Simulated scan of single mutants.
Amino acid sequence: MKLKKLVLTGAAGRLGSYLREPLSKMCDELVSTDIADDIGNLYDGERYVKADLAKFDEIEPLVEGADMVVHFGAIVDEVPFEEMLGPNFIGSYNIWEAGHRHGVRRVVYASSIHAVGMYPKTEFIGTDVPHRPDTFYGLAKCFTEDLGRMYWEKRQMESVHLRILSAAQVTNPRALGSWLSYDDLVRLVRVAIDTPVVGFTIAYGVSANDRAPVDNALASFLGYRPQDNAEQFAEQILAEAPQADPTDIGTMCHGGPFASIPLGQSAVGSMGIVDDRKKT
């Protein structure tokens, strides 16, 4: 069934750039939003509105009449808590509260492995493990997952929280297990929208990697069946990588570099992420 209206936050970001076109085909109207001045050429049925997630009066009008919100807007690195508070904590509250006031049925949220990033990689973790954040960034994901659960249990507003592992090019050994291809990202978001009933659901955002360190069994009802596998990159990545240090927290924990950095300090800069956002 084609939806009447979808809202996409974080539309100017790297992942948002890959979601805009498929989302525009799932609805009559796609409202894309971010804090950038513009996002380039728009797809059929798409319009762009510049808005700050931390400002309720800018967010509330966007969700009026929307069936669902795909909430990918946030600071996507570790920063001091004071900088994280507005977009990542208050921004999530604004999305859920505005959605509740306007009868939004469901929010599909870009959560993260960093909500449970301090678990050892030797533990094959499911979607039901207790929170164990590795950073203020991960803490914001925990907050929003709990917010979503509360709005479901108290206000019957559905949400699917996608704990994305590594949605970027495979450039290091960790990514051999954590990779989420852009095609699988689209597949995951699509089923999170299309599944008739979801209640409150957590699902890991990861491709069909031989080395995937997480278990999506409890979210199997979504019908997410990833098609890509990072093992195709293993021979080259492992041949070029330095020997791993088993005493390094960043090597041993699910959160990778986020697990080893001091709170409030950037981790993304050391991860070699390629800015290959889709151009319109």
Rank of each mutant, 00 (worst) to 15 (best):
V274F: 15
D67G: 10
R20P: 09
M157L: 14
R47N: 12
T9C: 07
V129E: 15
P120M: 03
R163L: 05
A36F: 05
A11M: 07
A241H: 04
R105D: 15
C27L: 03
S112A: 11
G91Q: 02
C253D: 02
E123L: 12
Y18H: 14
V79I: 11
V274I: 13
G199Y: 12
N229C: 13
M271Y: 02
R132C: 10
I237T: 07
D57L: 00
L165A: 10
D77T: 08
T247N: 14
W152R: 08
V116G: 01
G40K: 10
W152V: 04
F233V: 10
G16Q: 06
V189W: 05
F136N: 12
Y119T: 04
L176K: 05
C142R: 03
F258V: 07
D38E: 13
P61F: 00
D276Q: 09
V191R: 09
G65L: 07
D275F: 02
G223V: 13
D134Q: 02
L165V: 00
D134F: 06
G255T: 02
T201V: 09
R149E: 11
I193C: 11
R47P: 06
Q169A: 14
E153D: 14
R225D: 14
Y119K: 01
D128V: 06
R20M: 10
D77L: 06
A217R: 15
W152Q: 09
E231S: 15
P130F: 06
R211T: 03
I261L: 05
G10L: 10
A175E: 04
A110I: 07
N172K: 11
A140H: 00
G10S: 06
A234H: 04
L53R: 04
K154S: 15
T135S: 15
D37V: 02
E123N: 12
V191D: 10
E231V: 13
S17G: 11
A12E: 09
S92C: 14
K121Y: 00
D146E: 15
D67S: 12
A51S: 07
K141G: 06
L23W: 03
Y48T: 04
Y48N: 10
A175T: 00
V160L: 12
E46T: 06
L185T: 08
R155S: 12
C27Y: 00
V186M: 05
H100N: 09
V49D: 04
S24P: 07
P226S: 13
A219D: 14
D194P: 01
V104W: 03
K154M: 14
Y109A: 08
D245I: 01
W96Y: 15
H131L: 05
V69T: 10
V189G: 02
L263D: 03
S159P: 10
E158M: 02
Y224L: 11
L3T: 08
L3P: 00
L23E: 11
S92M: 11
A36H: 07
M1R: 15
V7A: 02
I35T: 13
P87V: 09
R277D: 13
S181D: 05
R47L: 07
E60H: 07
H254V: 02
P226M: 10
L218K: 15
D275R: 09
S92F: 06
G117K: 09
A11G: 08
S17C: 08
A175K: 12
L180F: 04
L3K: 15
I249W: 05
N216Q: 12
V76Y: 14
V69W: 07
I164P: 02
Y182N: 08
